[in-house]
Every structure is written in structure tokens, then in C-alpha cells.
């Protein structure tokens, strides 16, 4: 089975002619322009609210099913920024083979992935209409690998995404592709030892195309991450493994977009400080909303609060 990964287009052609290390050091030539031409901060903030709205719509449609609402709501801005402005998803003029890859390691946050992929044109309304359960479903409580729809990893078993993403970054280097690999993990997920096997590999190999975003919402199933198994300063840990490290407010779309445009010959970890359950006042920072059913009253309050948040974003933009 021959695999073709030859470049298309003149700008990319020049970039691809460079060595892998030159590419990782300089970054994609058109990266900054693309981000400048992408969605505005207001549009990204609105997309994040749309993602939250869809998250609660999933829960509302299945009132007897507990969903991982807290950790889906906390990463709405991360998803909006990645798929709204940072990533070359392959849906536009970027050749499919050269697309950026998104590895959602914390598959439990899939409810935020689906609307972000819909916004990016990688999922369709028909995919949503096939429901979330059973053999016909495309979307669900955990992602199933389907690269044609931008789903790189089958999720559910935590701690495997970083190693997989590192492998994708290595493959991109070997194929001389300009692709970047984005991996979204949870801070609780960093309890898994496999995360550190992978971090060691990525740092050692200076996989500069690997961009890791940690949705650091401070809570996991059994309680505050600081009490369950204190992950300590994740920045210091990843720095020791050979990563560049950054910290941002994970609900600040401009800050996220800004930090994700940095380029280096080392892999990057962005510790995005977030609020679990963000956007639903009654769910924020409450471990009970790690996974829970959403009743009618909760749904109504959530809709009202998200509408208020939307209005606030629009008012601020004027």
C-alpha cells in the first residue's frame, strides 16, 4: 500500500523542502497569517458558548443518562480556539494529509468535541441526527477513531492520548509534513503513569510540532485534584521532561490563541486554568457535576445563563 505525502501548493512546497528540524523550528510559514485571518475573539467566545449550549442539549436529550458535563464545559474555549482558528483541519485548502491532528486524550469531554467539529465542518448535522448510542451512532459519550471526521483517538481509557499524539508528531516529522499535533488532556488524567512515559518520549525527541493543552479544572471524580493526588506544579513537571511550558486562563480565547501560535523546537504544554462546569453557576467547581443527569429545571437555568453569557459577550464587543 503506497502512502503519498507529497506536498501541494507552492508555499507548502517550499516549507516541505526544508528539513524536519527547520520546520519544527520555524513553524508553519503561513501560521501567523492564518490565525490573524481567523475568527475574532468575540466570534471565538460565542463559539465557546455555542459549544456549552450543545453540551447541555445532549444532556437534555437524554435526561436519564449522566454525562460528563463538568469536564466538557471546562474545555469549551480550548475546543473553540483549536478548531475555530488554530488548526488547519483539512476542511479548507490544506491537503488532507497535511492537516493538523487533534487528539482528545480526555475522551470524557467528547460532548465539547462534537459541536466544535460541527463548527469546523468535520461533522455534519446528519452525524448528530444518528444519535449517541448504538451501532449507527457517530458521536457518543466517548470518541471512536474516525479520521475522516477529525477524530484521531478512541477515547475512554485515560492517559493514552499523549503517547499517541507523540507518535503522530514523529510520523509527521518522518513524512516531512508541516502538520501540528494538538493533544487535550485533563489535569486529573495526569495521574496516569503512561502520560509521563509519553512526556519523556516527546521531550527526548524534541517533538516541536506537539502542542499539549491541559484542561486544568482542578477536579476529578473523587474530588479536588490537589487532594486526590496532588499533581503539584504541572508546569515544572513538564519543563523537567523537556517541554516549553505556558500557563493561561483557559477561558480567555485570545490568550489561548496567542499562546498556541508560539513555535519552538521543543514540545509545548499549555496549562489552561479552567473552571469545571464553567458557564452553569450551579455546576461550577462542584465535583457532583463530574458526571450527572441534567433535569428540566437545571436545563432551563443553564439555557438562561448561557443566553446571558452570550449577551454579555456581544455587549462587550460593541
Amino acid at each position: 500500500m503506497p502512502v503519498s505525502w507529497h506536498c501541494h501548493g507552492s508555499v507548502r512546497g517550499r516549507a516541505l523542502a526544508a528539513t524536519a528540524s527547520e520546520i519544527t523550528q520555524s513553524g508553519r510559514a503561513d501560521g501567523v497569517a492564518r490565525i490573524g485571518a481567523g475568527l475574532s475573539s468575540t466570534e471565538l467566545a460565542l463559539r465557546a458558548i455555542d459549544i456549552r449550549r450543545q453540551v447541555i442539549e445532549f444532556a437534555h436529550a437524554h435526561p436519564d443518562t449522566p454525562f460528563h458535563l463538568g469536564g466538557s464545559l471546562s474545555c469549551a474555549e480550548i475546543m473553540a480556539v483549536l478548531l475555530g482558528t488554530i488548526m488547519h483541519t483539512g476542511a479548507g485548502d490544506v491537503p488532507w494529509e497535511e492537516r493538523d491532528r487533534l487528539v482528545l486524550s480526555k475522551g470524557h469531554a467528547s460532548l465539547a468535541l462534537w459541536p466544535a467539529l460541527l463548527q469546523a465542518g468535520l461533522l455534519s448535522k446528519e452525524d448528530f441526527d444518528r444519535g449517541m448510542f448504538g451501532p449507527e451512532a457517530v458521536i457518543g459519550k466517548q470518541p471512536r477513531r474516525d479520521t475522516s471526521r477529525g477524530i484521531e483517538l478512541s477515547g475512554g481509557s485515560l492517559g493514552m492520548g499523549l503517547g499517541y499524539a507523540a507518535g503522530l508528531a514523529l510520523a509527521a516529522r518522518r513524512k516531512n509534513l508541516p502538520s501540528r499535533i494538538y493533544c487535550v488532556m485533563g489535569d486529573g488524567e495526569c495521574d496516569e503513569g503512561s502520560v509521563w512515559e509519553a512526556a519523556s518520549f516527546a521531550g527526548h525527541n524534541r517533538l516541536g510540532s506537539l502542542m499539549v493543552i491541559i484542561d486544568a479544572n482542578g477536579l476529578q471524580l473523587d474530588g479536588p485534584t490537589s487532594q486526590v493526588l496532588d499533581s503539584g506544579p504541572l508546569t515544572g513537571k513538564f519543563a523537567a521532561f523537556g517541554f516549553d511550558v505556558q500557563q493561561v486562563d483557559g477561558h480567555d480565547v485570545a490568550a489561548l490563541a496567542n499562546v498556541l501560535t508560539t513555535r519552538s523546537d521543543r514540545p509545548l504544554v499549555v496549562v489552561a486554568h479552567t473552571v469545571k462546569g464553567k458557564g452553569l453557576s450551579f455546576a461550577e467547581n462542584d465535583v457532583k457535576w463530574h458526571d450527572r443527569c441534567l433535569d428540566e429545571d437545571g436545563y432551563s437555568r443553564a439555557v438562561a445563563e448561557l443566553e446571558a453569557a452570550r449577551k454579555e459577550v456581544l455587549d462587550r464587543a460593541e
Binding site: 503517547g163 499517541y164 514523529l170 503512561s194 512515559e197 518520549f201
Partner: peptide, 26 residues
């Protein structure tokens, strides 16, 4: 030379990295 990938004593990483390479056509 590029065929050789060393992950250290880390079999979880080994399977994850191997899977990604395989799915990228190697």
C-alpha cells in the same frame, strides 16, 4: 536509520507510538 524508534523501558508508550505510526501509514 529512521525505521528505528526507541521509547525506553516504557511499553505503554511503545504501543501508543507504534499505533500512531501505523495509522499514519508506516
Amino acid at each position: 536509520p529512521q525505521a528505528f524508534v526507541q521509547v525506553g523501558i516504557a511499553e505503554q508508550s511503545q504501543v501508543e507510538v507504534a499505533a500512531a505510526l501505523a495509522n499514519e501509514g508506516f
